[in-house]
């Protein structure tokens, strides 16, 4: 999976088309490389796992495999929201592990040219960690924040994940 992240960078000057899955969180639109996404599922029963960081919602059974679920709202310190029928879990493979991320809504798959990706602005108003932002896409009337979830889990955080009591 590391390769996809690298690819995005190397393609920057090549100006190739990449596909992004766009999703909403607290009325803002985000995009993530489609190659990262394994599947998108509806909300289902989540089993709470004790003694984990607050943004770990719990685990689900994805066809016989137990995978952790992370609330992106909590991860980015956004206000809590009720789950509704548009809430989705995006299952992705992050650093070699399957994981689900809860988002408000998944809208579409868009194609953009590498050239359209601009470096993230130095100051971001929302609570998103600067770290996870791979860039900003300014397309017609929409503004998309391109996320790199691999960066979300820094080495420290991965350790914390398993040792937090």
């Amino acid at each position: 999976m590391q390769t996809t992240a690298l690819k995005v960078k190397s393609e920057e000057y090549a100006g190739e088309l990449i596909q992004l899955v766009s999703f909403n969180l607290e009325n803002e639109e985000y995009g993530i490389n489609v190659l990262m996404v394994r599947e998108i599922i509806r909300m289902l029963n989540i089993t709470r796992v004790p003694n984990t960081p607050h943004y770990v919602e719990g685990v689900i059974n994805l066809r016989g495999k137990v995978i952790p679920i992370i609330s992106l709202r909590r991860k980015f310190d956004l206000p809590e929201a009720e789950y509704d029928k548009r809430t989705r879990i995006m299952v992705m493979e992050v650093v070699g592990e399957m994981m689900g991320f809860i988002v408000d809504e998944v809208s579409e798959v868009i194609r953009i040219s590498e050239k359209e990706i601009q470096p993230p602005p130095p100051v971001v108003s929302s609570g998103i960690d600067q770290e996870c932002m791979a860039g900003v896409i300014n397309q017609a009337e929409r503004l998309l924040v391109l996320l790199d979830l691999e960066r979300m889990f820094t080495a420290d955080e991965r350790k914390l994940f398993s040792s937090v009591a």
Binding site: N45, T47, P50, N51, V56, V66, P68, E97, F153, F161
Partner: peptide, 23 residues
């Protein structure tokens, strides 16, 4: 297994799937 992110939780040894599909 709970995967490597949740591997070392104190007091939790793993998970299992019950008859109704819940974990």
């Amino acid at each position: 297994s709970l995967g490597k992110f949740l591997a070392n939780l104190p007091g939790i040894g793993g998970s299992t799937i019950m008859g109704d599909g819940r974990v």
